[in-house]
Design a protein around this nucleic acid. Structure first.
Lengths: 340, 340
DNA sequence: ATGAAAGCGCTAACAC
DNA sequence: GTGTTAGCGCTTTCAT
């Protein structure tokens, strides 16, 4: 019932080999034959079976995107950038979730991807995550976003520098009692979190500010978590005058907590985030923006060119390594000068 | 180099057929044999080639999600719900974008999905969209979210009722000069937009309020568009006292425009949205919430059960039809009583 | 430039 | 319960 390459071959009066060549734009096909084959295929409404061509060729023409939670803004936005590129290259995009402790998967990502994709883009998983390790050792071609693994191409922001930018902004405004809303003690995207924490500590130390361990609280990278974290800070006898949030979504929660306490962001307490979330503007949140969609595009392009290069038996020179993309501060009303 | 079912068969001392049965949990396999096969497969780190089993079985064990723009909150959130379900069923999730006039695709969704998936979930595309029509006539098993096509299962909210809920809320607060920020004149998700517009008009008419055509403006369902639309309204000689936005993201933009004009939402002008976007709370936006993640789950479950049912030659009774999920008003500070 | 034919790795009758 | 075998629909040498 489904029409196959043989139907096309018969109707065009050529062999299946010629149809295959013609349809895929391979050389050594007479122009007249190609045109005829194309016409016949179109008139028959023929579409090649991907399973069959994949099995025969060994290629999958598919890339996977691995994320812990596609519902989060950062991940879905990266995904949008990736999708732009994959579609332009005619590749299938397989969505796989992994590394979310709250939603255990039936099988390891490695199992689910082997034989199935030409490569995978992993977003927001720490290098020491077993899923990532499994993929690396299984030899799946990878492109990482947000983490770095020796010998694997990746795309990152300078987390330390980004955090310092945010904290320095607060210091420049005269703040000294600066708290941080981190993710979780020993959470999943560990490195990113630790680099940002280190940046925070460095900035304070460089400014001669004493570190108050009580000023580190955790918001799980969610809005609700940010709200709870800010509430904790507000419940302290000694409150910070400014708060650095490791993500905009946590900062949004922090702003809510502030409002619930009858306080005004930028007046009573300054708040700065990281991300460049689209709602930062409406909320007047100062943030350090990262080029998220662009990061998705770059990661996808990197992976695709790696896959294509590997087809040619080229000398394996210039392995792409960690590529760092810049971030930039956008100051808004949520941060303001410290007033005694 | 890749290890195949024959390697496993050989190592386990059985035929490939038995390995196939054992691994897939089919009946008529001795328990002892099954255990042995499983052990051997595990020790060999065997993973079946999906292309091969798909080709042989005719099944793809894949569902596609078709959306105009995965970067938008509504779509990525539905996707999260879908993903929960597909992963639980061991299905692959293929992401396909279509119907975005700003980003034309190389091929029709129909071409890209035929032979490739067992079914597809289409989000946010109008029933009269050529892509959707193509999928329907190509016989791809479908589950629609946000639109309805005769004979195709779908999941919708009652757009008219939802809009009336929002507008009635404003009327109840004493507002009469109520504007609407719609999507675009004749935009993509036409039906949804038209139903909401109709709901808006009905509520006003029922309340005896005269319709002002100038009070309908367009925000393209984006935050920036909402901001522009609100600016237009504010530039009018005769301003509305309340604005109904067809999405929360447009409402966020409207709030920004308000602030830029030195006005306060809920004090100078009331604003209500639709969606239940996570940032609605931080922005104190009144909105009519829809259960978005749940809609994704339901759509996926509906599609999967349809696919599984179709395997059995059952009498084609009880075709699932449009399922309507409830929405509910959440009042916040962005709406307040009308004050002369 | 084109065709013949041998698989790709698995599933699904069918036979035992 | 298990094995044999004939494909699934395409790609890809190798001839010609």
């Amino acid at each position: 019932m489904t029409i196959t390459i043989r139907d096309v071959a018969r109707a065009a009066g050529v062999s299946t080999a010629t149809v295959s060549r013609a349809l895929r734009g391979l050389p050594y096909v007479d122009e007249a034959t190609r045109v005829r084959v194309l016409e016949v295929a179109a008139s028959l409404d023929y579409v090649a079976s991907p399973s069959a061509s994949r099995l025969a060729s060994g290629r999958t023409d598919t890339v996977a995107v691995v994320t812990p939670d596609i519902g989060r803004w950062f991940f879905s936005t990266i995904l949008a950038g990736i999708e732009e590129v994959t579609v332009a290259h005619g590749l299938d995009l397989l969505l796989v979730s992994a590394g979310n402790p709250e939603r255990p998967q039936p099988a390891l990502a490695e199992q689910r991807l082997r034989q199935r994709v030409d490569g995978a883009i992993v977003i927001g998983l720490s290098a020491d995550n077993p899923e990532v390790q499994g993929l690396v050792t299984a030899g799946v071609r990878l492109s990482l976003v947000g983490t770095t693994v020796e010998g694997v191409p990746s795309l990152v922001i300078d987390d330390g520098h980004t955090a310092r930018t945010a904290v320095q902004h607060l210091l420049d405004l005269g703040h000294r009692d600066i708290a941080v809303i981190s993710g979780a003690p020993g959470a999943s995207p560990v490195e990113m979190q630790e680099s940002r924490q280190r940046g925070y500590l460095e900035s304070l130390t460089n400014a001669g500010v004493e570190i108050d361990p009580n000023f580190t609280v955790y918001g799980r990278f969610t809005t609700e978590g940010g709200r709870e974290a800010m509430s904790q800070l507000l419940a302290r006898e000694y409150r910070p005058s400014a708060v650095f949030c490791m993500s905009d979504e946590m900062a949004f929660g922090a702003l809510t907590a502030l409002r619930e306490a009858g306080l005004v962001a930028g007046v009573d307490i300054s708040v700065v985030g990281i991300d460049g979330h689209p709602q930062a503007e409406a909320l007047q949140l100062t943030t350090v923006e990262q080029p998220v969609v662009e990061m998705g595009r770059l990661a996808a392009e990197g992976l695709i060119s790696a896959v294509e290069l590997s087809k040619v038996p080229s000398d394996d020179a210039d392995l792409p390594q960690a590529q760092v993309v810049p971030t930039s501060l956008v100051a808004r009303a949520s941060t303001a000068p410290y007033v005694g």
